[in-house]
Structure formats: structure tokens, C-alpha cells
Design a protein around this nucleic acid. Structure first.
Lengths: 137, 137
DNA sequence: CTTGACCTTCACACCGATGTGAGGGTTCGA
DNA sequence: TCGAACCCTCACATCGGTGTGAAGGTCAAG
């Protein structure tokens, strides 16, 4: 598919698709006329990229971890250098910390919302601290 | 404490502490000589801010959600407007999506690392897909 | 053939988070 | 009293992700 279609299907401006390419995150084919030609799988990949960018990872890092995340076979990466592994471990760690931070704050927001909505208890008075755990997301 | 100590204790450059103040995220006292004076609790708060920033939230949003996250009493916020609640729900949602994305990719990285490290299986050959689920974080 | 929708590259601009430095005041110890 | 180590404000620079426009090539439909 060409850039317009990928743009629509991923909700990503063409400019950004070119930017991601420039950063080495995706590598489209080229048609005879110079147009970019994207593989179907790049739809998912682009959404993955956007998600990671939104979560605060820079393209430099995303580029490093993407090759390890290809679904087909889990081991797309023949010869990972030790420093590569170290980088991955480091990022693994950072991501875990991010997740913890987000989860903690999300839960706090959820609790706040549950409280102000008066889900069984009428605001103020931090006395009892139990009710049904129906806060599924 | 003054800005230097807070800076050291949070690993945050003084410039950023001033920036966070400018953005309304923290509001230090002022000594007679004009120096900023930070409350002990701001150590945690600053770290929380940094975590959220690192997780991709802009200061504008952090400023909105911080008041709902004060530990002492969960209901620091007397009169939340409906649009405020809508904002919070929206952010709750975004954070959940971020968490999902991060968790998914983190797990994939962990799986990759487990594989290349040869944790019981010797690389290549994507044949069997089971081993002990000992990937606790 | 022309028009319009699509694509190309290039370049400049914006915004938010952060770095850095100038110019100047305060405090404390030598 | 002097110097070092703080602090202040102000302002400009950088960097990454993104927006936008100019100048031009390709292609299908009228």
C-alpha cells in the first residue's frame, strides 16, 4: 500500500511515517516511480511505534528494541552483542518502572473518581476503606 | 530545605525544579531573602512528577491529576467540575493504554532475553513453546 | 491535454522538556 | 574583608516529535 492508505489506517500523518522511516523504524519498499510501498504488517508496527512514542520512549530506543519484537519467530536476532543485551535489560527496567509509576497513579485516579462519584460512600470521612472491587478497566 | 538539597535528593537539576514551579506543579515557600523553601513532602512529589513526565504525560496533565493524588486524605478536591471528571476519565484511559502497550512490549523483550540467554532451550528452532513461567519482575 | 489527487524532497517553524550562561544578590567561613 | 558556594531572574539554545508549506513528479479520469 502507499503512504496515504497507511496513514489512514494508522491515523498517522504521512509526515510522521516519513519521519519514522528517516529514524530507521520502518523501511518501506519503493515503487518504480519512487513512491513508498508499505507492507501490510507495517500497520501493526506503526501502531506499536506510536504507542511506544506516546509512552515516552525515544525513536532511538524503539529502533533498538523493535527487532526483538517481531512476532513470526521470537528469535529474529541472530547475534546480539553483550552491550545490546545490556541495553535491552536496561530498557526492560525502565519500562517496568514506567509501568509501575503509571499503574500507581492510575489507580489513585481511579480511587479518586470512585470516591467523588460516591460509589457507596458519601465523600469526606476517610473512615472505612472497603467496598466491592468492581473497578475493572 | 532549599533548592540545592531538593535537587540532590531528587536527582533533579535546580532549573527543572524552577520549571516545574513555573508550570504550577509545585509551589515552594519563599524565605525572607527570596530563596525558595521546599517542604519535605516535595521530595516524593518531585519524583512522582518526574516519573509521570518520563512516562509521557505533559506538565499540563500532571498538574490536573496531581491534586487528586495527595496521600493524606484521598479527597483533597472539594468540587470537581464535570469536565474535570471527564478529563480524569480520559487520562485514566490513556494511562491504561500506555500501561498495556508498555507491558506488552516489555514482556516481549523479556521473552527475547530469556530466549537468547538460552534459559533451558538452545536458541533457534521455534518448536516447543513451554517452560517454567518464572519471569517475575 | 488538462485537472486533480496523490506522491516526492526539502526546509522552516512550533512546542515542550531541558541545558547553559550572564549578571547579580546572600551567606558563611578563612 | 574577601572568596566560595549558594541562591535569584532572565534569556537564549538544544533536542525530539510534529505541523506546514513550497516546488515539483506521477497517474487516472474527464
Amino acid at each position: 500500500m502507499r503512504i496515504g492508505e497507511l496513514s489512514e489506517r494508522t491515523g498517522t500523518p504521512p509526515r510522521l511515517l516519513r519521519y519514522y522511516e528517516e529514524q530507521g523504524l520502518i523501511i518501506p519498499e519503493r515503487c518504480a516511480n519512487g513512491y513508498r510501498s508499505y507492507d501490510e504488517r507495517l500497520v501493526d508496527r506503526v501502531q506499536q511505534i506510536r504507542g511506544l512514542l506516546d509512552a515516552g520512549l525515544p525513536t532511538r530506543i524503539i529502533k533498538q528494541i523493535l527487532p526483538c519484537l517481531d512476532k513470526p519467530s521470537t528469535i529474529h536476532f541472530p547475534d546480539p552483542t553483550p552491550e545490546m543485551l545490556a541495553t535491552l535489560e536496561c530498557e526492560l527496567d525502565r519500562m517496568t518502572r514506567r509501568i509501575d509509576c503509571l499503574a500507581r497513579n492510575r489507580d489513585a485516579i481511579a480511587a479518586y473518581l470512585a470516591t467523588v462519584r460516591g460509589d457507596g460512600v458519601t465523600v469526606a470521612e476517610p473512615s472505612s476503606a472497603e467496598q466491592d472491587p468492581a473497578q475493572q478497566d
